[in-house]
Amino acid sequence: MSTSNARDAILGSVRNALRRGPLDDTRRAELDARVPRHTRPAQGEDLVARFIRKFESRAGTTARVASRADVPAAVEAYRAGKGLPARAAVGAALQDLAFPGLEIHHGAAGVSEMLSVSQALAGIAEPGSLMMASGPASPITHNFVPDDHVVVLDAGAIVGHFEEAWAVLRARAEGMPRATNIISGPSRTADVEQTIQLGAHGPRRVHVIIVG
């Protein structure tokens, strides 16, 4: 297949349409240096409060604990409250914590996984969403396969706008994650008669434990 011919043909056709040849290096450097400054919607609210308000407006649930050491108890309270079996896929990002009474593993989530516990990279107050970065310590399957997804979010990791969340990604030594999941609540669909139904394909419930 002549995909390189297609490439040249398409780029040629684009330039043809724009009535010019390839851009010169000066112009390219200018474009590369372009810093977008789009309007960011005003926010006049405490970041944590806004995150909670927005996240809960889409059927997500939250709990707040004082310190990281309180996370296992909060997970256990959630698990017991939902009557889930005492088993969970837990991201290795949380391996510093002991989960007494819970049978845990740090692997990917399989089709019969009921509960997962993950560490969020950040929270974004603007829409009230979690930002999850994939990696060996936080597999993506944990975010989508189990019915119940519990996410640990540090209060200090909640930023105001999307742009600040991107800055967090850019600051990572390992660069962009393979997958960055911005999660705004439980999976939902409105494909049958516009009736909103939770748990379409992903988790039926997403519970955020805010630390700090």
Partner: peptide, 21 residues
């Protein structure tokens, strides 16, 4: 909606030590 439930940014294939993807 203010936002849809999932916004997913995908960058390349599974990394060497990734567990899924």
């Amino acid at each position: 909606q203010e936002t849809e439930t999932y916004t997913t940014i995908s960058t390349g294939p599974r990394r060497a030590d990734d567990l899924d993807g």
